[in-house]
Amino acid sequence: MRLAGDIFLLIGALFCLLATIGLLRMPDTYNRIQAGTKAGTLGALSLLLGVALIQPEWWAKLLTIAGFILFTSPVGSSTIARAIHLVGIRPWRNPPIEAPEEEK
């Protein structure tokens, strides 16, 4: 139990690290949000699962926290994305080497 919990904590930390690397490497805000929410969500959930395995009597609170993260995280991401979309920021496109795409 202890070992499984530790493994999940480690996986969670790893995904949070990946989210950070994604934030640094991605070319524009939309893609940074992608990296941040995706990796951040699984990172947080995995951390919570790890804690639940180590402290099983906390399951109810941890479940509630997970629920709130799952509801609020995407809303926050979409709100930021919508705001920059309305301001008129266009998403970064690949340099047009292949596949002619229509003009925006």
Binding site: N31, A35, T41, N94
Partner: peptide, 24 residues
């Protein structure tokens, strides 16, 4: 889908060529 998404994005983030083709 959530787990698939995370592994997929993790792969893109770590890949040296940053293989993304973003569009709306």
């Amino acid at each position: 889908a959530l787990i698939r998404a995370n592994l997929d994005v993790a792969r893109r983030v770590l890949s040296p060529t940053l293989p993304i083709r973003p569009a709306l």
